[in-house]
Amino acid sequence: MSPSSEEIVTSLLSMARLTVSDDEKATFVRDFPLIREGADGLYLPDVEFDEPAVKFNPLDYYPATAWPAVQAQSTRSEEV
């Protein structure tokens, strides 16, 4: 039998080490299906091959001229 919203919320709050009042917990339990619906709605087939929008830039914190070999074009200078 899969866990109920109440068991799920209890477990997640415990994992997050959050101590909440009873009525706050009751609100979480009531809202939980709606909160999950938002997340589950994002697993769309259209997104199957997409990269995330946030990307990693290895150049950060290195002064662009730190090394002779490469005059790395700063990724900051996006033309308008």
Binding site: E51, K55, F56, N57, P58, L59, A72, Q73, T75
Partner: peptide
């Protein structure tokens, strides 16, 4: 490639 960085490629062999 959304993550590719547009930086010039040096001549690795001459290095």
């Amino acid at each position: 490639d959304a993550c590719a960085v547009d930086a010039p490629v040096p001549d690795y062999l001459s290095g």
